[in-house]
Nucleic acid binder design. Structure first.
Length: 883
DNA sequence: GTTGTCACG
DNA sequence: ACGTACGTGACAACA
């Protein structure tokens, strides 16, 4: 039997817009003639993926023809008030059809009709002939077309992620049939299409009404029977609007289209046209992907020359070379070197790890501070070489770190991705050379590896001037050379030093926890009346909500939620809920911390070596992994005991820890210049108590109870996160209006904070990014999005990132100064860990006295703000005791 | 590979 | 009315 026919219908206009905003990097995506290409680039990616995933037999991309349509005839404001298309998108518009047709599909537009109507018409036509139909769009209105044969996929974020709508999923999510979407729209209106609906009726109310009455028509037949209410009045007053809005939302299924279905058959891609299109747009990766299907990878590269050395001499080194050490494993504390490459603009050398390790000239060059080196990932390179017995000094440029500083989205391990972004395409992806997953392997032919590395050397050299130019342009030079690059080397030292963890202590806990977990399981089984896997949220929810019939409090995407807040609510009536909470807590400790950490202790040294990722977070913080030492339990006593296993590496030594008190709020006080918040810090008041007094109008400090202070604390946290009344109400377990009152009063009492929030969002909307005190940037492409969720998220991020980021900058500076001071004073103390606002050291007892003054002094004076910074220090025989 | 949950600042 | 706190990583289960 032949495969079933499948028609793929794309809303070209909607996807083009989303492509444009989803990849809003106008500087980078330009062709040789200065034409912007970002939307075309993203659109190409969707098309390629859709062909691959959907494998349609028939396809059409529909576009809106123009502003006037049959809808504007009876409501002239329809889609009014829309911003005009940005010129950067308009200039790309003519090329969409070129691309689509080269790929083997047709495009279509029809005067007076929207893309929706074309799509609806063809969908119905195809269904009648037994096709499967898939519709791709960014417009939720099209879900009205979903049937058993037709699936509607809506873009969620940008264009890369799609959410599928079928009649069942619509029923499940909204409790109505696809066709009732039209009635829903009629009642609630649509602000982006600019039609009104009924006053004060939104999605929730509309759904409620539809569940009761089924349709707008039926609703108005029974409107007189409704109880007297404001809503009833609104319904009656806006009756005409409701019917008109419904008409506007209804997709025309009998549009006079001209192609027959047979004419929509997908044809083979027109390779010649595609090649010339990609050339014109400077889409080198896509060009390469086209080649891949026929030719060998390296054939599309320019030739590169390099020399493989079996014996290395001093003549093979000069000042200012690039260096790359290849290792496939992510965790470089345990990996094996594959090969090494270095060179300058004229000459590139490669050598085997054995040759390099045995070479005195190489070691001397590597250790020589005067011989400058450029690398990709300085920290990684330095640690790898350290394990090979080679000290690496004189690193003056790190391509990876540089690209991350310029754009925090560049976090990758693969140099090819970064290189490509800056227009250098003469280097393969690691995946291409080594494969991935289980199939990953070093090619037998050593020349393949060495040529690959030679190209990486070339990439490092080619990229550097471009990256430096970006630094100058964006005022990032100081952040890079004074903070990030020196920090990379300090983090390398910390990782290599590691922290001693006593396995015996953890083993003991493991046995005890295992026994207790078995006991707890038994209790839970008894309560449930059967055995099941408590660790499975799915099995658990069946027991709780289906078998035991407990009330459902919250749902997840896939079923019932069994998260902490839910179980806490249930625990009032069902003892099993509390038992599960206790079980979960202990199971977490056992799997992640006891067993998890044991796996990472190096038997030879008894130490754990984490890896700090310096190029990952969007705010400038570090992250820690394999294992994560930034989330070792502390809030609950039971978990906190894990810290007893973290001890100094010498007998009698101490663990010394210093943390900033309220650094984020102090940063906020500084950047917002809010008088009251500044005053609280300058006068060394307890900030949460001070907030409580102002917000709740308490005169006497003694009258601030624990509970009131707790609420004020939650408000302060909320402020830093970009507050919402809903979030605060959830956090405090109070009603939304109550939360709103707190926030309103807060803004009244701290007008500077309110002003800061308005200003920073405004600034983000204008510039497209926000920055920290030290000019670290975070781009916010969604800040002007028409999608409420995306935009709101970006707005909260605009508020939070400069605060969190500046705090991160400050601790980074403190780390650099601290490292310097320890060296200058010839101290034995070692910096071991960084946990966002605290530093952890190990030290001999005789240095405690010095540290107690030195660490706070350096941390408190790392920067000078308009409010003081305050540091608390503690020490003891283990991390647990340093509290 | 994705989802839900939970550990930290 | 919209649906929410900001930033992370690891684990077990399940597709």
């Amino acid at each position: 039997m032949a495969d079933k026919k499948k028609l793929l219908l794309l809303d070209g206009s909607s996807l083009a817009f989303r492509s444009f905003y989803g990849l809003l990097d106008l500087n980078r995506f330009k062709n040789q003639n200065g034409l912007h290409t970002n939307a075309l680039y993203a659109f190409n990616r969707i098309l390629t993926r859709l062909f691959e995933v959907e494998q349609p037999t028939h396809m059409l991309v529909a576009f809106d023809a123009g502003k006037t349509t049959f809808r504007t005839e009876y409501f002239k404001e329809y889609k009014g008030g829309r911003q005009t298309m940005p010129s950067e998108l308009a200039e790309q518009w003519p090329y969409f059809s070129v691309l689509i047709e080269a790929m083997g599909s047709k495009t279509y537009e029809l005067p007076n009709y929207e893309a929706d109507d074309i799509i609806g018409t063809y969908a119905r036509m195809a269904e009648e002939q037994g096709f499967d139909v898939v519709i791709i769009t960014g417009d939720k209105d099209l879900t009205q077309l979903a049937t058993d044969q037709t699936r509607v996929d809506i873009t969620v974020k940008g264009v890369s992620e799609l959410k599928s709508y079928t009649p069942e999923s619509i029923r499940e999510e909204m409790g109505i049939e696809p066709l009732q979407i039209i009635d829903m729209k009629g009642l609630m209106g649509d602000s982006s299409d600019n039609y009104p609906g009924v006053t004060k009726v939104g999605e929730k109310t509309a759904l409620k009404l539809l569940k009761e009455y089924g349709s707008i028509e039926n609703l108005y037949e029974h409107v007189d029977e409704m109880k007297k209410s404001k809503m009833k009045e609104n319904l009656i007053n806006d009756k005409e609007l409701a019917f008109m809005s419904k008409k506007l939302a209804t997709i025309d299924l009998a549009t006079p289209v001209s192609y027959s279905l047979d004419e929509l058959i997908v044809t083979d891609e027109n390779k010649e046209e595609l090649v010339s299109f990609y050339r014109e747009m400077n889409f080198n990766t896509f060009l390469r992907d086209l080649d891949h299907t026929e030719e060998d990878v390296s054939d599309s590269f320019e030739k590169i020359t390099y020399t493989h050395l079996d014996e290395i001499t001093e003549a093979h080194f000069t000042n200012d070379m690039a260096l790359y050490v290849e290792m496939l494993e992510d965790n470089y504390h345990y990996g094996t070197i594959v090969s090494v490459a270095w060179g300058d603009a004229n000459t590139i050398y490669t050598a085997s790890p054995e040759t390099v390790k045995a070479s005195i000239p190489f070691k001397e060059w590597a250790a020589n501070e005067e011989m400058k080196k450029a690398v990709y990932d300085a920290k990684r390179t330095q640690v790898i070489l350290h394990y090979a017995g080679i000290t690496l000094n004189g690193i003056h440029f790190d391509t990876l770190l540089a690209s991350y500083i310029i754009n925090t989205k560049d976090t990758g391990r693969d140099i090819a991705a970064v290189a490509q972004e800056y227009g250098y395409t003469e280097v393969s992806y690691d995946e291409t050379v080594y494969g991935k997953g289980a199939k990953q392997a070093v090619p037998e032919d050593a020349d393949i590896v060495n040529e690959h590395l030679a190209r990486k050397i070339k990439a490092i050299q080619t990229l550097r001037p471009q990256l430096e130019a970006e630094f100058e342009k964006d005022n990032l030079t100081e952040l890079y050379y004074e903070i990030e690059l020196p920090l990379a080397l300090i983090l390398a030292e910390m990782e290599m030093t590691g922290i001693t963890v006593e396995p015996a202590r953890l083993e003991k806990m493991k046995v005890e926890f295992a026994a207790r977990l078995t006991e707890m399981e038994k209790g839970i089984y008894t309560e449930a009346g059967e055995e099941f896997n408590v660790n499975s949220p799915k099995q658990l929810s069946i027991i709780l909500f289906e078998k035991m019939g407990l009330p459902v409090i919250k749902k997840t995407k896939t079923g019932y939620s069994t998260a902490v807040d839910v179980l806490e609510k249930l625990s009032a009536t069902a003892p099993i809920a509390q038992m599960i909470l206790d079980y979960r807590q202990l199971a977490k400790l056992q799997s992640t911390y006891v067993e998890g950490l044991l796996k990472y202790i190096k038997p030879e040294t008894g130490k754990i070596h984490t890896i700090y990722t310096q190029t990952l977070t969007q705010t400038g913080r570090l992250s820690s992994n394999e294992p994560n030492l930034q989330n070792i339990p502390v809030r609950m006593e039971e978990g906190r005991k894990i810290r007893q296993a973290f001890v100094p590496s010498h007998p009698d030594w101490q663990i010394f820890a210093s943390d900033y008190s309220q650094i984020e709020l102090r940063v906020l006080a500084h950047i917002s210049e809010d008088a009251h918040m500044k005053e609280a810090f300058i006068e060394e008041q307890d900030i949460h108590t001070s907030t409580a007094m102002r917000v709740f109008g308490i005169e006497d400090e003694a009258e601030v109870t624990g509970n009131v202070r707790r609420q004020a604390k939650a408000v302060n946290f909320g402020i830093v996160y970009g507050i919402s009344d809903y979030g605060l109400s959830q956090n405090l377990g109070i009603s939304r209006p109550e939360a709103k009152t707190f926030i309103d009063t807060y803004f009244e009492k701290y007008p500077g904070i309110k002003q800061f929030m308005t200003d920073i969002v405004e600034e983000a909307k204008e510039k497209g990014f926000v920055e920290t005190l030290f000019h670290r940037r975070r781009y916010l492409p969604d800040i002007n999005s028409s999608n409420f969720n995306l935009r709101s998220f970006a707005e909260r991020t605009a508020i939070n990132s400069p605060i969190q980021g500046t705090a991160a900058d400050i601790l980074k500076i403190a780390m650099i100064r601290m490292n310097k001071a320890l060296k200058e004073k010839n101290m034995k103390t070692r910096m071991l860990l960084q946990v966002h606002d605290e530093l952890i050291f190990e030290c001999p007892p005789e240095e405690i006295e010095v540290l107690e003054k030195l660490v706070p002094e350096i941390m408190e004076n790392a920067v000078s703000l308009s409010v003081p910074l305050l540091v608390d220090s503690h020490y003891g025989n283990s991390w647990y005791e340093a509290k």
